[in-house]
């Protein structure tokens, strides 16, 4: 897991990737429901429902089917839409405002690099307004360095 702390000091989880496709195509794959249905969740996952109203305040209603056949309804609201470079969405529906793992804000930034596109996903595990995200540098240090140590502590008991 790559964890980055930007200059503002907001601790977040960051996932970066480069795609061999121009930015406009990546943007379309991210915002066209017919395309999102084909990749969201990855191999073995199906997405029988994907409705996106891609504008600030618009909803993204989604049902994801896991390989065991269980269906999981997901609901998000778009906060920022700036084609073809920046898309921000947040958990909506029952999980909204609850804090914790379901209460995420996700920001995808696409940067053109010739015919390739750099993807950067930033996940904040709290409401958008609360800039103190759950994943602090200290937390990840505890998790990263500490897990073996913690295992040891537990075994010792």
């Amino acid at each position: 897991m790559k964890v980055d702390v930007p200059k503002g000091g907001d601790p977040v989880l960051v996932m970066e990737r480069e795609f061999d496709a121009p930015r406009e195509l990546v943007w379309a794959a991210l915002t066209d429901p017919a395309q999102v249905m084909r990749w969201y969740g990855g191999q073995g996952f199906e997405n029988p429902v994907c409705e996106m109203d891609v504008r600030p305040g618009g909803r993204w209603r989604h049902v994801m089917r896991t390989p065991d056949g269980a269906e999981h309804p997901l609901e998000y609201v778009f906060l920022e839409v700036k084609p073809p470079e920046r898309l921000v969405w947040r958990t909506a529906g029952p999980a909204e405002g609850q804090g914790g793992p379901h209460d995420n804000t996700m920001t995808v930034t696409l940067t053109a690099a010739g015919e390739r596109t750099r993807w950067r996903l930033v996940v904040e595990f709290r409401s958008h307004a609360d800039r103190e995200a759950a994943l602090g540098m200290g937390f990840t240090r505890v998790l990263g360095e500490g897990c073996d140590k913690l295992q040891g502590l537990v075994k010792r008991r």
Partner: peptide, 26 residues
């Protein structure tokens, strides 16, 4: 703490998998 770490690892894998599929799709 381990439960949280496990969940985060699953979350990371979810996106890894999704982005692999997105690369194939593209």
């Amino acid at each position: 703490l381990r439960d949280a770490a496990t969940w985060l690892e699953r979350y990371r894998r979810f996106w890894d998998r999704s982005l692999d599929a997105l690369a194939d799709h593209l």
